[in-house]
């Protein structure tokens, strides 16, 4: 019932368009890279300074100077380019990246996102998440519909410290997809995962949305 991690990533991949420049977050968002439709040209950006992320290297070809933002070894493509962190975030902040897919702990009904710290726990830092949600043209959140305790994660107002305010365009969970056409409109339930009912979504969601 519902979508698994890979199916959630595959659903996010449906939002890709030919020619897009895309930044993928760590976790489920990374799986989107495996779901790029054949024949579609999508260039992946790594915020540590690379356009055109290639697949993981063959064993023996790992290069410590070639890693992604998750500090994993990667490879380059014939079309790849490298640049500094300041250039990397100039392209992010400057609105040149078409789409980012990232995880979240909470999303609010007005598009606020919280995904970087839990008060009382060790703070690891926001990394590039605040820059991405502030600068990228379209923000897709991929997350489990409820927390490990069963609490809704799409809620009226975030309880955790925000990563960005009124920035999320689409939410893909294991149960459904919410979308809004612009940042002054409410989210609308546009799609249900197989065997999931609108009633189930409503029961597990405290945010206000249109159905």
């Amino acid at each position: 019932m519902g979508w698994d991690r890979n199916q959630m990533a595959a659903r996010a991949a449906k939002e890709l368009q030919d020619g897009y420049y895309v930044n993928l977050g760590i976790g489920i968002p990374t799986l989107v890279a495996n779901n790029i439709p054949d024949g579609m040209e999508v260039t992946l950006q790594s915020e540590n300074g690379m356009l055109g992320i290639g697949p993981f290297p063959y064993e023996g070809e790992e290069d410590p100077d070639l890693i992604n933002a998750g500090k994993q070894t990667i490879s380059e493509l014939p079309s790849s380019s490298y640049f500094s962190s300041s250039d990397s975030f100039a392209m992010i902040r400057g609105g040149h990246i078409d789409l980012t897919v990232l995880g979240a702990m909470e999303v609010a009904q007005d598009g606020d996102i919280a995904n970087w710290m839990i008060p009382g726990k060790m703070i690891k830092g926001m990394g590039g998440a605040m820059d991405l949600v502030a600068g990228v043209k379209k923000i897709i959140v991929v997350m489990e519909h409820v927390s490990k305790n069963g609490d809704p994660k799409f809620i009226p107002e975030c309880t955790l410290p925000l990563t960005g305010k009124n920035v999320v365009d689409m939410i893909i969970t294991d149960l459904c997809v919410f979308q809004r056409p612009d940042h002054s409109s409410p989210f609308r339930l546009i799609e249900l995962a197989p065997d999931v009912t609108a009633d189930e979504v409503a029961a597990k969601t405290t945010a206000r949305y249109e159905s």
Partner: peptide, 25 residues
């Protein structure tokens, strides 16, 4: 934020004492 840190250093090195950004608003 990572991009703000990179830009703070770039700006500092370029003689720019401050800049405005949407990041973190």
């Amino acid at each position: 934020p990572q991009g703000t840190l990179a830009e703070r250093c770039r700006a500092g090195g370029a003689g720019i004492p401050g800049f405005y950004t949407k990041t973190g608003v």
